[in-house]
């Protein structure tokens, strides 16, 4: 039963593959070792797919211009923004953020801005780069 499918399949044998080889083509035998090797620079990782211009990545927070109006805290759906009473500023837990950007829209001082950075997962949610203004 030769069908159109078989013809397509044989053709696809030689065309470019759709799999995204990020971060490495084949899963390493030991993830932990591989992560260490990457950190030491001994293992190269394939670059991720490019993100569009208006991508919603990790937020930046402009602490200086913040006036402490608490509007962002009121609209944050995942309680990633916590108001610090003593300082009058907000603390941002990146690990809780859902990247909805309601804080970006509501902030009267435009303190928040999206970046293109998205490789932010880590084992420790309290890590230095995962809490902004700790």
């Amino acid at each position: 039963m030769p069908t159109q499918t078989i013809y397509t399949l044989i053709k696809q044998l030689f065309t470019e593959k759709a799999t995204n080889p990020f971060p490495v083509k084949y899963t390493p035998d030991n993830m932990h070792d591989a992560a260490e090797l990457i950190e030491e620079g001994k293992l190269e990782i394939n670059p991720p797919v490019e993100v569009p211009e208006d991508f919603r990545g990790k937020l930046t927070y402009d602490k200086e211009s913040c006036i402490g109006c608490k509007l962002c805290v009121r609209v944050c759906p995942s309680e990633a923004l916590v108001f610090k009473e003593d300082e009058g500023k907000v603390k941002h837990y990146v690990s809780r953020c859902t990247f909805c950007g309601q804080c970006v829209n509501i902030c009267p001082q435009s303190c928040f801005e999206f970046t293109q950075e998205f490789l932010i997962a880590g084992p420790d949610k309290e890590a230095e780069d995962l809490v902004i203004n700790p």
């Binding site: 399949l9 044989i10 696809q12 044998l13 065309t15 593959k17 759709a18 799999t19 080889p21 083509k25 084949y26």
Partner: peptide, 13 residues
């Protein structure tokens, strides 16, 4: 491997 390649994937080693 070959079935993966026919389906347009890289497939396992």
């Amino acid at each position: 491997k070959i079935t993966a390649m026919m389906q347009g994937r890289i497939g396992p080693p």
